[in-house]
Amino acid sequence: MDKTFEGLTTTSVETQEQAVELIEKLYAVAQPGAVFSEPMEFEGRTVITAAEVNVGLGVGFGFGGGSTPADEEEPKKGHRSGHAKSSDPHERVTLTGGEEGSKGASGEMEGEDSAQDFGMGGGGGGGGGASGRPIAVISVTGEGVEVEPVVDVTKIALAFFTALGSMFFMLMKMKKAAER
């Protein structure tokens, strides 16, 4: 049992260390290399793309353990062996045929192991997300630099229709209020 506990603890610690290493790698996204691409030669000009990057990550761990004290359970009927209730947890009784035994000065315990039980549990979890969106293309020639924005028509159209719907809804409300 000790070896199992030790093994589980070691595995848990290793997993947590790996998680911390992963979190540290997250901050590499804060560098310009994550946003700007390597320069590329294209039709006599050097092109660099620029994008916006968003990354988030979270992990959590939990571990617990416990033990039960020396045997204090009630006698079980119908069992050849079992435990008898006693006001003194250290006193042991002898049981026969599933009948409750009488308390004696000393006796033998049969059946289940009366050694301390030990339980433990642990868990962990994590989650994350990432997104990227092109912003512009930087074009470098011997004459100068041009920054051309990348326009996402879909996103603009969605924002437009959302605003339009909101305006229409409010105009109807205002019209009704005016009629009253």
Partner: peptide, 29 residues
């Protein structure tokens, strides 16, 4: 990045938030 007589240095701005078991980074040009 140098092209002919022109040298270009890109600039990015990053907002980083750290907590004990995680983090968030928003980086933009």
């Amino acid at each position: 990045v140098s092209v002919g007589e022109v040298t270009v240095t890109p600039l990015s701005q990053a907002l980083s938030v750290r907590w004990s078991h995680g983090g968030w980074v928003w980086n933009r040009p």
